[in-house]
Computed example of a mutant assay.
Amino acid sequence: MDHIRTLHLFVRCVELGNFSAAAREASTSQPTVSKALAALEQRMGVRLLERSTTSVMPTSQGMRFYERIKPMLEQYDEAIADAKGLRDQPEGLLRVNAPVALGQLHVSRFVREFLDVHPGVEVELIFNDRMVNLVDEGVDVAVRLGPDLPPGAIGRRIGASERVLVASPVYLAQHKAPRQPRDLADHQYVRFAWSPAELVLKADGRTETVMAPGRYRVNHAIAIRDAVLEGAGVGLCPRWLVAEEMKRGTLKRVLPRWTGQAQEIHLLTPSRRFRPARTALFLDFLAARLAALPGVSPAR
């Protein structure tokens, strides 16, 4: 097998975690991949992968080799594309990671728009809310919400979305609307499962910390929004999550002078000097789309 192709297979085996998935992606057989990588290890005199009946994992030497060889392969692919005159027509696979709610509501749509414009690109979009290690998980671009960034990543701040208190007209018709932050103690507060019942709110240079009890806690932003829409109580939500509902009037601002800490939006890439054309184009494309979302204040 061609040496460059073998190196590509090695990279994908590390990222996918087994020979079979890498073989399917490369339109070849699992024994062919296994044989090629065994030959690579024999040629190098180093064990790169630990094998089990269902998966493979890189050894410490294999991980170091992966981190060095992947950007070199990307440079090779880019050089081939450049020689063919394809620099303005990006090709290849992009692995993108996004938070669940923002991903479902917006990022998925933006990815499909990008694919329509760039037919040579493939995208693997994974939703989760945990802080992923971009290198270990083979992620090219990650969308992250909040101020904390993972180590070894380059962050590009896209903007921020103000957190506002909202409730449904039905709930507000049944419960006296709060007039000041401490009134929230008399309301049901729908919040994230692991967040405290204390709310820190700001207005006109003042900060108040108030207790906001609630019987319903959930670890999904869309579930919080939907519960508030259905009259379960008051929620503190980023504007991007509730902008359309506020525009339609299905959600109303509560304590409109007061806001929570704004939610920052970042795009992350691994800390590599080389960046394929498809990644650079996608970063610019996604940054523009996210910054233009209703409820997002673009970074200056």
Rank of each mutant, 00 (worst) to 15 (best):
D82Q: 13
T209C: 06
V111D: 01
E124D: 09
L115H: 01
I224M: 13
I4D: 07
Q42F: 03
V164K: 10
H3C: 01
Q261I: 11
P150Q: 07
Q42Y: 01
V166D: 05
E25G: 02
R47T: 06
V135G: 07
D226P: 14
V100E: 13
K70R: 15
F274K: 10
V121W: 00
L125V: 06
A26F: 02
S27W: 05
R43N: 10
E50V: 12
S108N: 09
E264H: 07
L267K: 08
S27V: 03
L73W: 05
E162C: 08
K247H: 14
E50G: 00
V242Y: 05
I154Y: 02
K176V: 15
V210T: 08
F282T: 01
I69N: 03
H8C: 02
R109H: 07
D77A: 12
A280D: 05
F110A: 09
V166E: 07
T250P: 08
T53W: 15
D88M: 01
L102C: 04
L184M: 09
V100Y: 11
P256W: 00
E208D: 02
N97D: 06
R179V: 12
A243E: 00
A232Y: 12
R112L: 11
L49C: 06
D284E: 01
V46C: 11
P256K: 04
L16T: 00
A203L: 07
G295M: 00
P213S: 10
D82S: 11
P276A: 10
P90T: 10
A203S: 13
L115G: 00
V141G: 15
R225E: 12
M72R: 13
K70Y: 10
R239A: 13
L286A: 02
A142R: 15
T279W: 00
S297K: 13
Y66R: 15
M211R: 12
S29Q: 03
R206V: 15
L267E: 02
L105T: 11
L94V: 08
V242I: 14
H106P: 01
P270S: 07
S27R: 12
L241H: 09
S34N: 08
E25Y: 03
F10Y: 02
R273S: 13
P294V: 05
K202L: 13
M211A: 04
H266Y: 13
G205F: 03
L73V: 13
E124L: 02
G120D: 02
V111L: 09
C237W: 07
